[in-house]
């Protein structure tokens, strides 16, 4: 079985994110860049398929040249090889543009299963996995909290607000996973060292047959018109108890007013 895990280089999730006022895209040099934490859950599922079913796993990244370290980081969890799509023409792509590039890259690859994280921690659109499946004409099984491969079919528990549905499809298929699916492992030192020498193939947009007229900043459907810094946190309400117990009802009134109760 061949599995591909698309991953993303994102600004440090815990850090303050900045938007570049010139082109109104995320300033990717403002903070430390990391492997998107949601990808770790997809990687963990792939590593388990490798351990339990002998899957060969390739990591796919679309991003700038210096994102190589993120591919290596993904490989350090035990994945087999990397493919990086780097091209000036794809910079500034929106979710659909991103999905077009990833789908194009996948068209050139052999695979049975693509495992995405359900969202990235920077944009959080959750659109890319389903869009990739749509473009490729493959079954799309999103928000998986459980994933099983059984012969030539994949079965997932698809999470929603009221619980989950059990959904299955034939392979090849595109799956996106949520954080409840597993507990990602930590890369071992052996894994970290081995990642240095694993094959990493770098391709341009034309190498994968992509069309520069469909992707990148100039062809994005989503346009950021205006942005403002997050307003400072407002001071909270302090309820003080004068010893009479009146604070309890004040607190209850406040919670009711805010519709917490």
């Amino acid at each position: 079985m061949k599995v591909i895990v698309p991953v993303k280089r994102v600004p440090d999730t815990a850090g303050e994110k900045k938007i570049d006022p010139n082109d109104k895209t995320v300033d990717r040099d403002a903070g430390e860049a990391v492997l998107c934490p949601v990808n770790e859950f997809a990687i963990e599922e792939a590593v388990r398929l490798k351990e339990n079913a002998g899957a060969e796993v390739k990591v796919l990244l679309m991003g700038p040249d210096n994102a190589q370290s993120i591919v290596r980081k993904a490989l350090s969890y035990g994945l087999d090889e990397g493919l990086q799509i780097t091209d000036d023409a794809i910079a500034g792509s929106d979710a659909i543009g991103t999905a077009r590039v990833i789908a194009k890259a996948l068209e050139n690859e052999e695979f049975d299963l693509v495992i995405f994280g359900n969202q990235s921690t920077d944009a959080r659109t959750c659109l890319v996995p389903a869009a990739v499946a749509e473009i490729l004409g493959l079954p799309s099984l999103t928000y998986a909290r459980k994933l099983e491969v059984d012969g030539d079919k994949v079965v997932v528990h698809r999470e929603h607000e009221e619980g989950w549905d059990v959904v299955e499809s034939t392979l090849p298929a595109v799956v996106s996973v949520v954080e409840a699916i597993n507990e990602p492992r930590y890369p071992s030192f052996k894994g970290i060292m081995a990642a240095k020498s694993k094959p990493l193939n770098q391709k341009s947009l034309s190498d994968i047959g992509g069309d520069a007229g469909e992707v990148g900043f100039d062809n994005a459907n989503a346009v950021l018109i205006e942005f403002a810094p997050r307003p400072p946190k407002e001071a909270g309400t302090i309820v003080e108890d004068d010893g009479s117990g009146a604070a309890a009802s004040q607190l209850a009134d406040w919670m009711e007013q805010k519709k917490f109760i």
Partner: peptide, 14 residues
């Protein structure tokens, strides 16, 4: 090295 720093990140998280 970079590898040591990756190990450091893993250990710290753990």
């Amino acid at each position: 090295t970079d590898e040591h720093q990756q190990l450091r990140a893993s250990v710290r998280r753990f």
